[in-house]
Amino acid sequence: MTVTDTSVRRTPKAAKTSSVFKKIVMAVTGIIMILFLIAHMVGNLHVFQGAESFNDYSEWLRSFGEPALPPRTFLTGLEVVLLVSVIAHIWAAVALWRQAKRARPQSYVTKKSVAQSYASRTMRWGGVIIGGFIVYHILDLTFGVANPDGTDSTPYDRLVASFQNPIATTVYVVTLILLGMHLRHGIWSATQTLGQSNRRRERTVNAFAFGFATLLIAGYLVVPAAVVFGLVD
C-alpha cells in the first residue's frame, strides 16, 4: 500500500518536461500570437479603406522584401512562426490538461468555485474552439475553400462574402468573444507565469488584460459589424 511506504522522494525527471516549463512555453507562444493578433487587427482595418487597399495589403504581405527575397518569404516566415507557436501552445495546453486530469482522477461530489473567473474556466474548451476556428478561418479567407465565394476570389470578396453569411458571422463573433476571454485571463496568467506579477501590480495587470482584450476584440468585431450593417460591401 502506498501510504505505508517509507516516504523518501524519488529522483525527478528533467526540467524540460516540468509543468512550469510548459507554462512558460505557453506564455511565450501566447505572447507571439498576441503580437500577431495586434498586427492582424490593424491589417484587417484596411477594409475600411476599400477593396483595393485591402487587397494591396494582402498582396504586400506576400511580396514584402521582393526582389531581394523570393516571393512570400516574409509571409511564410510568419506562418512558420505562428504554426510552431500554435502547435507548441497546444502541446503545452494538452499536456497540462492531462496532468490535471491525472492529478484528480476522482472528482468532488460537490465543488464550488470561489475565485475562479469565467474567463479562466473557459481557457481549455475556449482554446479548443479557437484552434478549430483558426483552421476554418484559414480555409475560409486564406485558401477560400470554405468560402461562399470559393477559391477564385480576392481576399476582400471572400471576407465580405463570409460576413454576409449569418452562420459564418456567428462563428466569427462567438469565437472572437471567446478569444477575448482567453486573452483576458491569458495576459494575467502570462504575467504570473513569467514571474512579473506582484501584489502591487496585480490590479494593474488585471485591468490592462481586460482593457486590452476588449479593445482588441472590438477592433476585430468592427469588420463583421461593418459588413453586416452594410458599411462595407
Binding site: V20, L96, Q99, S113, A115, Q116, S120, M123, Q192
Partner: peptide, 8 residues
C-alpha cells in the same frame, strides 16, 4: 497538476 494561475 500544473498551475494555470486560476487563484482558487
Amino acid at each position: 497538476g500544473g498551475c494555470t494561475n486560476i487563484g482558487e
